[in-house]
Amino acid sequence: MADIKYTDDHEYLSIEGDVATVGITKHAQEQLGDVVFVELPEVGKAVAKGDEAAVVESVKAAAEVYAPVSGEVVEANGDLEGNPGLVNEDPEGGAWFMKIKISDKSELDGMMDADGYAKFVAEQG
């Protein structure tokens, strides 16, 4: 069973073994509005925690998706390029952005669980 973590950049990581499936949260896509464009990283790309790894754009704004952990991009969700609206429909399911093979699991320390993230969102208003 996957372990789900959340970052304060409104991204989620679904961790199975040493691979994290990364996407943006339901709250993040609501803030962004109708998603019309997604740009994904190349498979095989090495990313460091905090790097701009992908781009998600709505009608009115562009946003970066950061690599929440360091590692190697092992898969990118090509479905999003043809159907960016999936990010609004199923953000925490079918609309994951990338899978990263985690190089240092200690980077997960301090990330929020679902309850912690719900509180974080509520506090942000």
Binding site: D9, H10, E11, I24, A28, L32, V55, V56, K60, A61, A62, A63, E64, V65, Y66
Partner: peptide, 10 residues
Amino acid sequence: MSPGGGASVN
């Protein structure tokens, strides 16, 4: 995720 350049409506 965080809004980049050109965020928010003009």
